[in-house]
């Protein structure tokens, strides 16, 4: 299976590649539209800001490539946020593959931003992407922005308010947490994605 990891400059690129290797898959890190289009699975990781990653995708001329993919696509963390129409972070227009807008998590007494650490996942609907992930399983989050719980939300999480932890619509999926750093739960999600839990 050919898995392309989109090189959008995120610092967790290596971590995601290693997580896939632990599952027996050697992913190709690439910013080449041809490599990405030819892959069986595409993963868009991202650590930094929505604006930084979108700017890099524009510079690499990958925006239309990503918008027109038909194979399963998984966005991770900021990579998931970019799947939506818009991010409040630096007022950034995103890929628009999923309806909705990403907004800043609201701090409150006892609710610290960034949301950092292991938090529980709450099932919103059944989906092959989250097969084997129990209700209340924990995953590792590090983020300050999040997507709302809409029709595409498969797993939700709570920090101040509720937000989407895993989304899926057609061939497009996203995880707000870091599967590469979420122990067995994260490995399960990546494994399901590779086994084509989406589309």
């Amino acid at each position: 299976m050919r898995v392309a990891l989109v090189d959008a400059g995120g610092a967790n690129l290596g971590s995601v590649r290693y997580a896939l290797r632990r599952l027996g898959v050697e992913a190709q890190v690439s910013a080449d539209a041809n490599v990405i289009r030819a892959a069986d699975r595409v993963i868009l990781p991202g650590v930094s800001t929505a604006a930084t990653v979108m700017r890099r995708l524009h510079e690499l001329d990958l925006v239309e490539t990503l918008r027109n993919l038909r194979q399963p696509l998984l966005g991770v963390c900021v990579g998931m946020q970019l799947l939506f129409e818009h991010s409040e972070e630096d007022d950034t227009p995103c890929l628009g593959l999923l309806p909705g807008r990403v907004s800043k998590l609201r701090s409150a007494p006892g609710v610290r931003i960034p949301h950092m650490g292991w938090n529980r996942l709450e099932p919103m609907r059944a989906d092959a992407l989250v097969d084997g992930i129990a209700s209340g399983a924990q995953a590792y989050f590090v983020h300050s922005y999040a997507a709302p719980v809409g029709a595409d939300c498969v797993l939700a999480c709570e920090h101040g308010g509720r937000f989407a932890a895993v989304v899926q619509r057609g061939h497009v999926a996203g995880a707000q947490f870091h599967p590469e750093r979420s122990g067995a739960t994260g490995a399960r999600l990546l494994g399901n994605f590779l086994g084509s839990g989406v589309a």
């Binding site: 971590s15 290693y18 997580a19 290797r21 590792y140 590090v142 870091h178 590469e180 979420s182 994260g186």
Partner: peptide, 11 residues
């Protein structure tokens, strides 16, 4: 750091 990252699945 790379050796740790390649094998560790917690942050």
């Amino acid at each position: 750091v790379e050796r740790v990252s390649s094998l560790l699945d917690i942050p």
